[in-house]
């Protein structure tokens, strides 16, 4: 008899295979049915179905708007392919489905729904934010204690409960329209794209549509660059960008929650409690 490892491998190979599995697929050694007349394949097929359905339902839980837009039948078809191509690697199912947007991008039959991958990106961002750690508040007194030069060298920490998304399509409106049941409202793709921040405050998830300058500032900070570099980037795309106003907004909305001063910078060093050393 095969050992436990080989048994589990064979079991896994069966349940992850397509229904047109290659002949000669090694089967785990099963006891012939004491009750009922079931073949080994029929018994194993129940596990194969459970496997596909549980991952498909995980996807449906994260991507309800995508499912609404393509219809349940097509969603099941796409999910089945996705599950075949993208195994789960965690015991926590909430990690599953991260690559669904990219997968949809090339999926046959969706050519006309050009905005669909970005809707999926928005839904994944929503999912991530839903499960993210709690947001903290920035230590304002510590920030105020910095002199101007130190302030420019600061690297801000973007909240874990915050995700950024750029789309050529009005995906936030698409998402919102699809929350309502039976809405007759339509929108035109000519409305154009959106730069959006998905953020959670307490249990509420919000979409904030930002101007190009403000979005670029936050995006540059999220890449770990200094405040000076972020200001340059923001002003390069929007010369009239109100840096002070944007910074205040990011703090008030808890999009930036902490900051660090790189070593060697002349300025006030700050302890965790915000007191000057």
């Amino acid at each position: 008899m095969p050992g436990l490892h080989e048994q589990q491998r064979r079991f896994a190979n069966f349940i992850t295979a397509t229904d047109e599995a290659p002949p000669g697929l090694a089967m785990p050694g099963l006891k012939s049915g004491a009750v009922g007349e079931f073949t080994d394949e029929q018994r194993l097929q129940i596990y194969r179905n459970n496997y596909r359905i549980s991952l498909r339902e995980a996807l449906a839980g994260v991507y309800p708007v995508v499912q609404k837009l393509v219809g349940e039948e097509f969603f099941h078809h796409a999910a089945r392919e996705y599950v075949l191509q993208h195994p789960s690697h965690r015991g926590n199912l909430h990690h599953y489905g991260a690559d669904f947007a990219t997968f949809l991008q090339g999926f046959p039959g969706l050519e006309e729904l050009v905005y669909l991958p970005d809707v999926a990106r928005l839904e994944w961002a929503h999912h991530q934010v839903f499960h993210a750690t709690e947001d903290r508040a920035l230590r304002l007194s510590a920030l105020a204690a910095l002199d101007e030069q130190a302030m420019m060298e600061v690297c801000f920490v973007v909240s874990d409960a915050c995700r950024l998304l750029v789309s050529d399509y009005p995906v936030v409106k698409i998402w919102q329209l699809n929350q309502a049941v039976g809405t007759q409202e339509t929108l035109s793709l000519d409305e154009g794209g959106v730069r959006c921040v998905v953020i959670r405050h307490g249990c509420d998830i919000e979409f904030h549509v930002l101007d190009e300058g403000g979005f670029t500032l936050l995006e540059t900070l999220a890449q770990g660059k200094s405040f000076a570099r972020a200001c340059e980037a923001a002003l390069a795309v929007e010369t009239a960008c109100d840096i002070g106003g944007v910074l205040q907004y990011l703090v008030v909305q808890k999009m930036i929650v902490d900051f660090g001063v790189p070593p060697g910078v002349v300025g006030q060093q700050v302890t965790d409690t915000g007191e000057r050393k």
Binding site: L4, Q7, A12, N50, S88, G91
Partner: peptide
């Protein structure tokens, strides 16, 4: 069990009731 060789099936899969298991 629910995983082997790093792949998870997110299901409660049966074990052979043997001394090895």
């Amino acid at each position: 069990w629910s995983s082997v060789d790093g792949q998870y099936f997110n299901d409660l899969l049966p074990l052979p009731y043997t001394e090895e298991a």
